[in-house]
């Protein structure tokens, strides 16, 4: 605590002290002009500074305002604004073009050699390129435009390698069109063209307009064919609406629009019981579910009539229909 005595001892005489003998003692007490009271304006100032709103403003508002004002003034000039933007873009570019982020190689996995070449040409990246500049989504979309590619997965691996993992489409059917042969996968999507049917004689043949879109149904029918499978030459899509099964000896099985597999199963049951398809039939019409209809070949028809004691039918006349 400060002393309550408002005096301070001060040497009375300044300047020269005697050269010998005792130094002059401090003899007088000088009144020290010191007033502990704050001046009126200091007091008022302190009170103003203790005002809660002002304190909050000084602590928060004023720094914010100052920073905003400085930034605003600095950014007011177009030139400096561009300079600042330039600095930031440069920094970003420098960072992005660091060797750690450069992609130099493309590795393609899960594709045959020809497809890999096609993918590579399709990717069309002029490497090396920074991984920040690569648009992997767009590249993936470009690759997936290839018919033979079902899905692609692109990722940038460490060491600057862009790894492309490709899932190929597997052809399950051959589609014959007027323009040529096409390999089709289980969804009916084109996989590739085909020059010779004999090149892929392991695959079943389909034909007709819209056959590719109904490929899943065709596969179901083929799977249900069972015992007659070796005899099937192919399936024909009729009027883009229903299937015909073409067997050897030009036999045809006309399947209905709805539930073709069920109809085929019933036919197979008939075949198993009466060995029907081995007979001299031209076609089996299953389009009406409660009335399967057979058409015999002309020879068989005549033989039947003859066996029943009837005249053989005359030779059919070719008419313009």
């Amino acid at each position: 605590m400060r002393s309550l005595i408002p005096f301070r001892i001060r040497p009375a005489r300044h300047g020269k002290q005697p050269e010998f003998g005792r130094a002059e003692p401090p003899v007088t007490r000088a009144r020290v002009a010191h007033d502990p009271a704050p001046s009126l304006w200091a007091y008022r100032m302190q009170r103003v500074m203790l005002t809660p709103y002002l304190r909050r403003f000084l602590r928060v508002g004023l720094p914010v305002l100052a920073v905003a004002a400085v930034t605003g003034l600095y950014m007011a000039s177009e030139e400096r604004r561009n300079g600042v933007i330039q600095v930031f873009t440069d920094l970003r570019e420098k960072f992005q073009s660091r060797p750690e982020f450069m992609v130099t190689l493309v590795s393609i996995e899960g594709a045959s050699v020809e497809l890999a070449d096609a993918v590579r040409s399709r990717l069309d990246l002029n490497l090396p390129k920074s991984s920040f500049d690569l648009d992997l989504e767009a590249a993936r979309a470009r690759i997936e435009e290839l018919d033979a590619v079902r899905g692609a997965e692109l990722r940038v691996r460490s060491g600057g390698v862009l790894s492309v993992l490709i899932t190929e489409r597997q052809p399950v059917l051959v589609w014959r069109q007027a323009t040529g042969l096409t390999l089709v996968d289980e969804t009916g999507h084109r996989v590739a063209g085909l020059f010779e049917r004999a090149d892929r004689d392991d695959l079943a043949l389909i034909a007709g307009e819209g056959a590719d879109k109904a490929a899943p149904e065709a596969l179901d029918i083929l799977a249900a064919a069972g015992p007659i499978a070796p005899r099937i030459r192919g399936l024909v899509r009729m009027g883009d609406r229903r299937w015909d099964i073409v067997l050897d000896r030009n036999q045809r099985i006309l399947l209905p629009e709805d539930n073709p597999v069920r109809a085929l199963e019933r036919l197979l049951a008939l075949d198993q019981a009466q060995d029907m398809l081995a007979r001299d039939l031209a076609s089996v019409d299953l389009r009406l579910p409660n009335r399967p209809t057979l058409r015999l070949t002309p020879y068989a028809m005549n033989e039947l009539r003859r066996a029943n004691g009837l005249e053989p039918l005359p030779e059919p006349v070719e008419t313009e229909l």
């Binding site: 009271a37 704050p38 009126l40 302190q46 203790l50 005002t51 809660p52």
Partner: peptide, 18 residues
């Protein structure tokens, strides 16, 4: 008045409130 001001100012400073 000055003495009152001294006391009030010191107390305000301690309380940190006006």
């Amino acid at each position: 008045e000055r003495a009152i001001r001294t006391a009030v100012q010191a107390a305000q400073k301690m309380a940190n409130v006006r």
